[in-house]
Amino acid sequence: MIPSSFDYSAPTTLEEALNLLEEIGDEAKILAGGHSLIPMMKLRFAEPEHLIDLSNVPGLSYINTEGNTVKIGAMTREVDAEESEELNKLFPIFKDVGKLIADPQVRNFGTLGGNLAHGDAANDQPAVMMALNAEIEIIGKEGTRTVGIDDFFFGFYATAVEEGEILTAIKIPIPDGKFGSAYHKSERKVGDYATGGVGVQLTFDSSGTCTKAGIGLTNVNPTPLRASRSEEALVGTTVTDEVIEQAAQFASEDCNPSADLRGDEDYKRRIIKVLTKRMIVKAKERAFS
């Protein structure tokens, strides 16, 4: 399978890339790792007329801690987040999700920025970023702006990155107090999209009360979904078995899965319930270890 014909540019600065985007307009598409876009182009689901490859733009691949924020460059490869000790000491969720995204070869090329900018509710990083309450940095001709993860996903393959803009970084706040995170998805086989996936981060104060909860769900809604009612159920409690059961129940009720080859709606709701329970338990364990 070969994509339909297109033109290709590999700018060496962001400014040059933005100029190209402006010049070419909506027929241009940014190429990061290409491991979502190129398969879609081969199937001719996507037929951009011009690819702007960011690989030669320096300074877009990094994981830096700045004050209470970890900043991850958009071109950081999945494998680099998975293997970063600095990142996983704070957020072991990256090790969890790293092992589950596609396969090792794909993770060598796929990027975190591309994963998010693709805007696919079946991708795993969106739910992770919801759990972690990330912010997305976007650059355009007018300058840089930051969008909260809850305002980032608009619809099927649609995000807050507008025409003429480029996603440049992901900012993850480091919570105060004890905190732990975890992610898991159910998949039919390695490399498959999630039947359902759940990412959780919990923050506790010194008395052991949960002060903040982030729960993101994968592939059970047209857009990546925040399980708000489940989060509210946890905050202000010590996250007992009873509360966990309730939060998991809410997640299974509030998601909107559709039946497909991976299972029917009821089955997917059950998957979400079980995984929500397990990931809350794991995140709590990690917060106190």
Partner: peptide, 11 residues
């Protein structure tokens, strides 16, 4: 290691 069916030669 990379899957060469998902990478453009020009990349």
């Amino acid at each position: 290691s990379a899957k060469s069916c998902t990478i453009l030669a020009i990349q």
